[in-house]
């Protein structure tokens, strides 16, 4: 009886498909809801800084004067708390993961477009 079970299992293992994915060749399983990485549509950002204040990992730095938004990819825990609080819904999580890198910068830096002409002082250009 035991031998029969064993033979069946052995045959199934020989003939059947592998349980693993051939990862680099076949993409990893990702779903519509998967939290892969954080992205921003910088044009819509109003630099209110809510995302940086609510970030549990202190990964986001926003500068209103310089009109910049930056995220430290190594600190970010992809919890989507910033996505929830963003008043302009310009932050979003996409299912794809950030490609791995071998050296700095690990901080993704986004420079917003200059402020609309009239109000405030002129945006800094570098």
């Amino acid at each position: 009886m035991g031998l029969f079970t064993m033979t069946k299992r052995a045959l199934a293992n020989v003939i059947g498909k592998p349980a693993t994915l051939m990862y680099p060749v076949k993409p990893a399983k990702q779903f519509e809801r998967s939290r892969g990485m954080l992205e921003i549509t910088i044009e819509d950002c109003i630099y209110c800084g809510l995302c940086s204040r609510h970030c549990p990992a202190d990964a986001i730095v926003v500068s209103k004067d310089d009109r910049t938004w930056q995220v430290d990819r190594l600190r970010c825990i992809i919890c989507a708390q910033c996505v929830d609080v963003c008043p302009k819904t310009c932050l979003r999580l996409v299912p794809e993961y950030k490609k791995s890198v071998a050296e700095p910068p690990f901080v993704d830096f986004f420079q917003g477009p200059p402020a609309p002409p009239k109000p405030e002082k002129k945006a800094k250009e570098e």
Binding site: V61, S63, T68, Q70, P104, P105, V107, F109, F110, Q111, E126
Partner: peptide, 9 residues
């Protein structure tokens, strides 16, 4: 503030 890389902006 990290020195803006080549792909700045």
């Amino acid at each position: 503030t990290p020195a803006p890389g080549p792909e700045e902006g």
